[in-house]
Write a protein that binds this DNA or RNA. Structure first.
Lengths: 229, 229
DNA sequence: CCAAAAGTGTTGTTAGTACACCCATGG
DNA sequence: CCATGGGTGTACTAACAACACTTTTGG
């Protein structure tokens, strides 16, 4: 392949906005950069795309390096290619977001990071490169998706209560929701299963536990069940 | 910028699905390729991204070369980066669609094309590279956008009738719509202006002409007025 | 028995859907 | 006067929004 040489020198990267949820807040996994440029600044985890690697694979690799997780909800959002976005040359980056269940999850700083941490979206101020814009774009996309597809379950543990589900929606959408209307709507869709189990050891009436019903879920994600809340 | 050299040889391109509408059908502008690979096959118009060119600029350039048009509705849709998608090397392509009003428009075959033509979407069978998949993805995106944003006007001439608008929605969404309900919905949104003008020279009762009201339109596009039809 | 969160129905309002006839023009 | 598409209203149904009290548990 000669024409890229003749053309110009450039690179592709993938940046991944990894969302997690912890009972009340929506969080993003950030790394502290260990390399120039922007050493010591917080940034989104990302990597150059390998020669024999599809874009989705690359996003999955980043996710696995940091969290050990595979087969997680992953969505390509937008490609950022402003000429000056990388101070050292032309780097076009494809942004993805992923949704992970953070229960029992200990992220580890991979090779390209000095440090790693979950940060509440409302606490993120500035990030390296144009990563703040990338994060904002991915958040907006997540909000849109959540309104029309039942992907919220991806952020929750296997067993969850309806209140947890509602808090998740409230955290992502940044709104308050009516408890009764929320439950009415959720139960009308057929995607959750009542496990006939209850919370234990809580100082109040224990909540029923639910899991989501994969059978209905798949088609609901495809066909975009309206989940306007 | 050294690391791209050390890394691997690759190129970025942009492919543009240019949609037009001609009273009854949704069309896409296709070119007949004048270069290897796939010489003589029909393909989407596309180009390599120039060193000092943003992605959106690149998509605009393709559009201007072929149609002479500028300041047209243009939307980035998805980036395709399968390792084997280009037989001569690694080329990652960013797909855009644009919406153009085809009245008084004569597209010209630019340098990279031997021939150019509007093709009805239902008549497109196979295309070079993975362009059929790209086209299908962009069509799906257009359909989604059209349901929630009033972007259909971009495909129509300045003055249009409500029946033309309805036929456009039917062509894009591939459904039939009820005339009275359609009109009710359109008039509830504040984005079109009655010009108090009528069609001339038609062998039936002449239809009123409308144009869209840019003042309301801008915010409706931003905020995503529900235009579910 | 107190604190804390779980759970549960009804009513009014709004948007959606289905449907059929008369009107204005050119030929 | 005929053919063609333009234009209009109503009744039924389904979804949405607002709202307050009783239940179950741990401490």
């Amino acid at each position: 392949m000669s024409f890229s040489y003749e053309y110009f020198k450039s690179a592709f990267s993938v940046d991944n906005v990894i969302f997690g949820f912890d009972k009340t807040d929506l969080n993003v996994l950030l790394i502290k950069r260990g390399e120039e440029p922007f050493v010591g600044d917080w940034a989104l985890p990302g990597a150059l795309v390998l020669p024999d690697e599809d874009l989705d694979e690359s996003a999955n690799r980043i996710l696995k390096d940091l969290t050990g997780l595979e087969n997680v909800y992953l969505k390509q959002v937008h490609t950022f290619g402003a000429v000056e976005r990388h101070p050292k040359g032309r780097v076009i980056t494809v942004a993805y977001f992923s949704l992970v269940n953070t229960t029992d999850l200990k992220p580890v700083a991979a090779s390209f990071a000095k440090e790693i941490k979950w940060t509440r979206i409302q606490d993120i101020d500035s990030l390296a490169f144009d990563h703040h814009k990338i994060m904002a774009t991915c958040l907006k996309k997540l909000q849109e998706e959540l309104r029309f597809k039942p992907i919220g379950f991806e952020l929750l543990p296997e067993k969850f209560t309806l209140t947890e589900l509602q808090q998740l929606y409230e955290a992502v959408l940044g709104t308050e929701l009516d408890k009764r209307n929320f439950r009415k709507k959720v139960s009308k869709m057929k995607i959750i299963k009542d496990l006939n189990l209850y919370q234990e050891g809580v100082a109040h009436r224990p909540a029923r536990l639910y899991s989501f019903d994969e059978e209905y879920y798949e088609e609901a994600v495809e066909n975009g069940v309206t989940f306007e809340l």
